[in-house]
Design a protein around this nucleic acid. Sequence first.
DNA 1: ACTTGGCACTCGGGAACACAGAGTGCTAGA
DNA 2: TCTAGCACTCTGTGTTCCCGAGTGCCAAGT
Lengths: 337, 337
Amino acid sequence: MLDERKLAVLRAIVEDYVSTNEPVGSKALAERHNLKVSPATVRNDMAALEEEGYITQPHTSAGRVPTDKGYRLFVDRLSQVKPLSGAERRAIETFLAGAVDLDDVVTRTVRLLAQLTRQVAVVQYPTLTRSTVRHVELVPLSERRVMLVLITNTGRVEQRVVELPEVVEDTRIAHLRAVLNACLDGCGLSAVPDLVADLPERLPAEDRPAVATILSVLLETLVERHDEKIVFAGAANLAGADFTVGLRDVLEALEEQVVLMRLLGETSSDTPSALTVRIGSENPYLHGTSIVATGYGSGDNQLARLGVLGPTRMDYPVTMGAVRAVARYVSQILAAS
Amino acid sequence: MLDERKLAVLRAIVEDYVSTNEPVGSKALAERHNLKVSPATVRNDMAALEEEGYITQPHTSAGRVPTDKGYRLFVDRLSQVKPLSGAERRAIETFLAGAVDLDDVVTRTVRLLAQLTRQVAVVQYPTLTRSTVRHVELVPLSERRVMLVLITNTGRVEQRVVELPEVVEDTRIAHLRAVLNACLDGCGLSAVPDLVADLPERLPAEDRPAVATILSVLLETLVERHDEKIVFAGAANLAGADFTVGLRDVLEALEEQVVLMRLLGETSSDTPSALTVRIGSENPYLHGTSIVATGYGSGDNQLARLGVLGPTRMDYPVTMGAVRAVARYVSQILAAS
DNA sequence: ACTTGGCACTCGGGAACACAGAGTGCTAGA
DNA sequence: TCTAGCACTCTGTGTTCCCGAGTGCCAAGT
């Protein structure tokens, strides 16, 4: 059905269209790529490709444009991820190495990725669920208020102000802190609910109301942050691009955490670090855009996802290379800290 | 020079143009607003207004459009801030009251403001400089690493991992923590450098290298966050608007903290809570856009600024009302926590 | 059987043009 | 000082026309 040359034609069409943003015709194709056949032959191949749904023409007597299906075939079989240049790799490394805390790592990552790909970059904050507790701190603020601070091994810090049901002395707070840390230090966050379940019973009865309140806030903190924050950067890169869907819709999606989460997709449990490419109508919400994403995190412990979003007409090999490289470096940074 | 009726004409032109986005002509003006004079008279007034530079016409034989100078006069003398409806006020209150921590307050505020004004909202994080220290925490992570956590009275938490020059026992860390808290608790952040200056000398000589390292990180934390983070929301609202400057430039400015900071402007020290309106070319960088901003914070302690950015052609009375109201409510929330 | 050159056909986009309508400035009269 | 009338000047729109890029198909060549 699709012999070698037809695939070469498809590849050429995708590459030309991506770089020129104009429907590509048979004549130009035969010239620019040395296909060693005449425009007429190319036309026949193009007709076949159109028949199969890989390309289409905007109007009669215009050049051809790849369809989503065409891009899909291109990504799957006709292209290979383009690695970054040495200079780019070094730039990434030094830029990310300057980060001072987790927030900073994420901010730098998202900006870097946006600049590198000239698309919109999207980064999900590392999930807490797989993190472990490094320290729990209780800071008395006033007689009946305590600040609960939770520090994880990824450097994340969560804090909540807890209103106590009754006055609790500082020494009792200190004791509770010691107990909590002895109990939780080094444990995975997902194990926390089980571990603290019988805690009130192991403490003096008079403390129970306060302890129960504090624990409920602690658990709430874990749950609330389960669906994690997502940030984006590079919206300015959308200004030039033309989507089949309106620019407004794209910007709205970017500010809607839930939609963005769906777009980034789930990390497939078997190959978490594989690149996911969603093209045009393959996307759950935003048709007309493509997404290149991957999981990141240290080693086998995948923490979250990052990727870029752009028009369907994007340079997939380069974008995929950038996403993969950035994911690797940020994983490295996180593992080191 | 400008009698009462001419001012009325200018007001009518601004109002009409803002609502229709089309140059407004003399005939329509005389009809829609009951000026009780004929179109011809209006034309004479318009000629005068144009002479003075308050309005202009895009081409000969098109209606008139306000200039920046015209909007300025409108804002200063011809309009009054439009208060929000009761329903809106209640909605703001309940929405902001649901915030769980400082991050959440800021996020909710910026979204709220964007939705309310249908413009891009910009909120600066409360500055640390005027905050006071509520607690300093040192958490031993390993033999030579300590996490420094700084908690302020605004609920802000800053953390840094400190690499120590030598092994320090936990008990000595605990002692240092006690000393630090005794020294700093309740003090303004700006006073911290002075307060810790002689600290190393008051401690055993063997601890000095470690103490010096920790203190330098602490001071660094204060300095680094001095220029504060700014967030925005509602970029989707830019999609419809037309700026004289390109959409791309606006989006770029929004992602550039420094530029955004300049746009929000300084809180004037004498009347910190006054509304600042910058129209078109009055803006330092982004000509063609207007900014309505104000300081916020509890009472006389102005913490930071917030505002909205939109096209010069904006509904100033409504926008100013929304900005003012949101600033008040968020100040209230912050004061309570 | 595949490739190639030739040829008629289609359609989008740009240039040239005319026209209606909105809005203006000006002048004369109330 | 305001108003009515009038001639003038634009922009935007609709029409027409034509060029050129690109196609599909067919017949001839390898």
